[in-house]
Every structure is written in C-alpha cells, then in structure tokens.
Design a protein around this nucleic acid. Structure first.
Lengths: 225, 225
DNA sequence: AGCATCCTCCAAATATCCATGGAATATTGT
DNA sequence: ACAATATTCCATGGATATTTGGAGGATGCT
C-alpha cells in the first residue's frame, strides 16, 4: 500500500494545502475585506479604504485570499475588481462568524463594544417580509449605494447612513422604518435606528443583515430601481 | 455616535477576535487534529499520535483550538479528553474542506496524491441505505475501534483497516462490501477496498465518510453493539 | 509616444507563529 | 508522603507573516 514515509509526507502536504484556506481566514483585516466583498465586488482601492489599509497592504491581503481560492478577479480597464469565488465562500464566512460568536465570549464582547448598547428593536426576516407585504413598514438599506446596487431586499430604499440625516424628509413622518445593513457585525443599521429614534421616528433593525438574508435564500433584487 | 478613533479600534478588536477562530484553522496539524476530533473525543496523547506530533506540540495546538472555542475539555482521572465544542464546529470544518477542494486546485491534487488513484467504486449515502435495507450489502467501518464506538452507521461492522487482512474470514466470500472511514480526506476506506478487491472480493467505498454522514443528519449508532 | 492611474511585485524591518526540550502542575495509586 | 502518569507551562531558535515604501507593469487618455 505504498511507502509509509511518502504517505505521511503526502498527508501533511494535503492538510497544509487545506490550511491555506484557513490561513486566509486567520487575519482580522482579511475578514474585514471578506465582509465587504460579501456585499458585492469591489476595486482594490475601494477595499483598501473600506478596511482602513494601505493600498499595498490591501493588495497583499487580497493576493492571499486569491491564492486560497476564496476570491476571483475581473479586470475592468485600469482597475481590478475582486469578488467572492462563490456562494460557498460567503457561507463559510458566515459560519465562521456564527461559530466565533457562539463559542468565543471575547468575540461577543468585542461585538457589543463595537455595535454599542443593545437599545434598538430587532425584527426577524419573516416579520420584515410580513410587514412589507402588509404595507406597514418602510425598509431602508443604509449601506453605501454601491452595495445596494449589487443586491438588496426587494422594495427597500437606498438611504446610506451618511446621507440619512440630510434625507430624513424622504421618510413619511409616521413611517414604521426597518433598517438593515451588511450583517451581524455591521454597525450602520444600529446607528441608523439610533439616529431615527433620536428624531422621534419609529425605527427598528433587521436581525443580522444582507449576508444572512442571502444565505437564508431570501429574495434579492439588483440594480438601482 | 461616538469617537471615530475609538470606533476604528473597536472594529479592529472585533475582527481580530473573529480572526482567532480563523487562526485555529490556519495550520495543517491543527486541521489533522480536528479531523480526528470530528470522529469523537480523544486524549492529548492519542491526538498527538494520530497527528504525528510531539506531545508538547500537540498540547500547544490544542490550547490554540481551545482558546478559539472550537474544542472543549473533560478531565477523566489523570487524562484530559478533548472534543469538538459543537456540531457547528464540525460543520465549519466540513465546509472549509468543501471550499478548499472546490476553489483550490492544489488541495485537490494533494488529496488525489494522498488517497491514491481513483480506482475504487463509490457508493452514495442513499445507495448504502438502500442496500442495507435490501440486505444486499455488508457495511464495514474501517476506522480505529474507538471511533466506531463513538458513533457509526447503524448495522456496520467494526473492522479496522489494520485488522482487515487478518479478519477476512468474517466477511462472507460472496458479500458485497461497502467500506467507509472518517471523511473526504481519509485514506482508510480506499486502502480497505483495494485490499479486498486484491483478495477477489467485491467491495466499494462510501462517498466521503462519517463526518459528512453526520452532517447530512443520517442515523448514527453508538457503542460496540 | 507620453503621461496618469491603478495595481502588483520586491525588499527590509518588525512582529508573530511553530517545534522542541526541560521544568512545573495535577491526579492517581501505593 | 512519595512515585508515576498525563498534561501544561515556559524559554528558545528558526521559520513565516505583516506592513511599508519604492520600483515595475498594464491599461486608458490625449
């Protein structure tokens, strides 16, 4: 059945190759990049900004992700767009987040420290769909417009957080607003709900966000409609 | 809405905490340990041997896994048993394997180099269950006996690979054997089928193995029955 | 062609990880 | 209390990662 020496080497080689995928997930900045990429494709420059990285640093991290097969690239003129290599990659990232929050108290503490106090109402995916169908809720997508275009909840209005204060008038005074953003670790919807309630509006937040919505196979619309 | 300085720091802290879970998956030896742990709990000593590691090295890796929350420990007298922290951890590991093999050609090559030529018949989980129900197959579990005890396919016979040659007589001459082992990267079933066919027996191999069987919510029996 | 833009590659400094062996700790049995 | 077993802790050297700045490539525009 073959030389045991070679067999042990090949076993190590196999698991080392598998570990390359794990290595891709072993750095906080790379996870931030994946978090953004889970919303849709982005240029290197945009990704560097989103993750607060130098351009060359971001490029290096993206190379790591690419070699692990988690992302692919597309050239568009002078710029290169990175995107997740498939839905399974988004699922892997989502499951990593779940496992980390379930089994690692530190991660959970770090999240609440980042997202702020748990003072906002939360709405499930089913409740959101029910309210939309009944016409009793106004759903707003507070992510950057680019991410809304790449994929959003049908019927949602694109109202990026940094424009929300200025565009308050677009929301009916008595509207029952439901805000959502990227996912479990996204602060935008929390801040949006706080801003709205501070202005006397009724607002709640979709549980999780677009990543989990998509992984749960809920309907997704694209474009600027 | 808070000091943007602090917010960036907290964001980094959050993703660094999440990355701890990724780091746990970033080393080939740790993945080997998880592979064994996915079959059931094991002592440090047994794990070190299974992964071909020094005792202190294995202990260090297990500490890393523990800090990431992927495994828990149970003390039994003088020895400490490690086990996966939950089914979601097994699912995460399984998904990592899937993603790696799907998107990383190297990993796939490394696997075929390790498992050997693709010369063995493969049986799906449904086919196995059908044949068992019809009584047309003899299912053998070629993992170490300890793993069989921790959980096996109902009706399977424990016949560890290293005893298979000596215990051939226990299998009816004309039996249609289906062998299985740990999972996608486990070589035991491949070797078992090759050994059996070399002895003129009819033998096939269950696709994947016990990990995927369990993740697919198929029935599992425990004990030495 | 010449220039600007976007990105990757390279090299060096710093930080982190890994394997190993010896010491320390915890439990069991005598 | 003492010895034996199983594991963790600690210190160390060597390997690998991360960040940064500058050079080099590719594309598009004029």
């Amino acid at each position: 059945m073959g030389d045991p020496q070679h067999k042990a080497e090949r076993k190590s080689a196999l698991y080392d190759a598998l570990a390359r995928t794990g290595k891709a997930l072993s750095n906080g900045k790379r996870l931030e990049l994946l978090d953004v990429l889970a919303q849709g494709e982005r240029s290197v420059d945009a990704l560097a900004q989103a993750a607060g990285l130098g351009l060359t640093t971001a490029s290096a991290h993206l190379q790591t992700l690419k070699q692990a097969g988690l992302v692919t690239t597309r050239r568009d003129g002078v710029r290169i767009h990175y995107r997740l290599a498939g839905d399974d990659v988004a699922a892997l990232y989502g499951l990593l987040l779940n496992v980390a929050h379930t089994h690692q108290p530190d991660a959970d503490h770090a999240r609440t420290a980042y997202l702020g106090p748990d003072d906002t109402d939360e709405v499930t995916r089913d409740e959101l769909l029910d309210r939309v169908k009944a016409g009793t809720a106004t759903v707003i997508d507070v992510r950057p417009a680019e991410e809304y275009t790449a994929g959003h909840i049908p019927g949602a209005l694109s109202l990026p957080l940094d424009q929300l204060a200025a565009r308050l008038a677009e929301l009916p005074e008595n509207a029952n607003v439901v805000a959502y953003c990227r996912g479990t670790n996204c602060v935008l919807a929390h801040d949006a709900v706080r801003l709205l309630t501070a202005h006397g509006r009724r607002a709640a937040r979709l549980i999780d966000g677009m990543l989990e919505w998509r992984l749960d196979h809920r309907p997704v619309a694209t474009g600027t409609a």
